[in-house]
């Protein structure tokens, strides 16, 4: 089975903060990691490869330093890594990103399955997976929590819902987005780390993938970010003490101010 896993390099949520002047993410000095949801997608891809044979290619779009997540993916069992990187991609929204990834996948060649994390923890849109499936004109199923059965031609899946889950059978090719209940990602192996150290990655530019310049980067993005701001701080809180009667009295006093 040929599997492509889309991964994104994101700032580690443990030390994210906003620049108080510009209201944008302060990326300086913040460590980058593989988007956590993508780690579950990668683990499932490697499990499927171990079960059915085949190969796993990881694909990322980002600046040159995003090869770090490709290297990490190799240490965790992926076979190949491809980075799409070009200044022309800067400012891409989810639609332009989906277009760019679809073009890159055409360039990579045939596939049976594409796995994506449900969403990236920086943008939180959950749109790129489904957008990519539309661009590739293949079916997609989102929020997969379990792969029940897998064969070369069909998957039986559990899709997480608000009130339980659906069981979905799909034929391949298909694109899935996954949630964290899917598996427990492995710890990199020594063999994997050694392989990752030596791995070389294909870096594709806009020209390499034959992208239409009107469809990529800021120019190809219908979304316009008007402003970014941190949520307002929470209002003042007070804890009332004493007997229930005393507390009610205090509460009434506090409310009365506003009447």
């Amino acid at each position: 089975m040929k599997i492509i896993v889309c991964v994104k390099q994101v700032p580690d949520a443990k030390d994210v903060r906003l620049d108080p002047k510009t209201n944008t993410l302060a990326r300086e000095g913040v460590q980058s990691i593989m988007n956590p949801y993508d780690q579950y997608a990668l683990e499932e891809a490697v499990l499927l490869k171990e079960q059915l044979g085949g190969e796993v290619t990881v694909l990322s779009m980002g600046p040159p330093q995003a090869v770090d997540v490709l290297r990490q993916a190799i240490s965790l069992g992926a076979d190949h890594g491809v980075l799409v990187s070009d200044r022309a991609f800067a400012g891409a929204d989810t639609w332009a990103t989906s277009y760019t990834l679809a073009k890159a996948i055409h360039k990579i060649g045939d596939f049976d399955l594409i796995l994506c994390g449900k969403q990236a923890i920086d943008g939180d849109t959950a749109q790129v997976g489904p957008g990519l499936a539309i661009q590739l004109d293949i079916p997609f199923v989102t929020c997969i929590q379990k792969v029940r059965e897998a064969s070369e031609s069909e998957l039986v899946l559990e899709r997480m819902m608000d009130d339980g889950y659906d069981v979905v059978a799909v034929s391949l090719p298909v694109l899935l987005t996954v949630v964290k209940d899917l598996n427990i990602p492995r710890i990199p192996s020594l063999k994997g780390k050694m392989k990752a150290k030596k791995a070389e990655f294909k870096i594709l530019s806009a020209e390499d993938i034959g992208a239409d310049s009107a469809c990529i980067g800021l120019a190809g993005s219908p979304t316009q970010v008007v402003s970014v701001f941190p949520p307002p701080p929470r209002g003042e809180r007070a804890v009332l003490t004493g007997t229930v009667e005393e507390q009610i009295e205090q509460l009434v006093e506090k409310i009365a101010v506003y009447l």
Binding site: I187, S189, K191
Partner: peptide, 9 residues
């Protein structure tokens, strides 16, 4: 998980 990470080797 240690086995998977090759530590036993």
């Amino acid at each position: 998980s240690m086995a998977q990470a090759d530590l036993f080797g």
